[in-house]
């Protein structure tokens, strides 16, 4: 219900500005505006749906039948408590070592790289 109004306002503004530039493109612009409007509409329905879902989830987590509370530790916490006991530190975002730039970032870690002045 909000969107028709806003689109009208928007189209009025656009028409006003475009009158100065070109009058022949008005029809095309109107068509475009309709498309825009549809897209906006779709977007709004999607967001409302996801919001509803979130609310339902929240309800079920807090209370069940108005009496019981479902105890659900956050997924992250649960994951951490019983996850694999391992000292290895895995690389999460590996670099692309084929790139010259990335290779250069560790050049001076080697004896073949540049040395400090005092050594």
């Amino acid at each position: 219900k909000k969107f028709p109004e806003s689109s009208k306002v928007a189209s009025g503004q656009r028409l006003g500005s475009e009158n100065l530039i070109d009058e022949t493109s008005d029809v095309e612009d109107l068509l475009k505006e309709e498309e825009d409007y549809k897209e906006e509409n779709n977007y709004s329905t999607e967001t409302s749906v996801t919001e509803d879902n979130e609310e339902e989830d929240g309800d079920s987590r807090e209370e069940l039948g108005g009496l019981f509370r479902v105890s659900q530790p956050s997924r992250e916490c649960k994951h951490k408590l019983d996850s694999l006991d391992c000292s290895r530190f895995h690389v999460e975002a590996p670099h692309d070592w084929d790139l010259e730039e990335v290779m250069n970032s560790i050049r001076d870690c080697f004896v073949t790289g540049k040395w400090e002045d005092d050594k």
């Binding site: 408590l81 019983d82 006991d85």
Partner: peptide, 8 residues
């Protein structure tokens, strides 16, 4: 403590 992680 709780959980099996970091047992060692």
């Amino acid at each position: 403590y709780a959980g099996c992680n970091f047992l060692r």
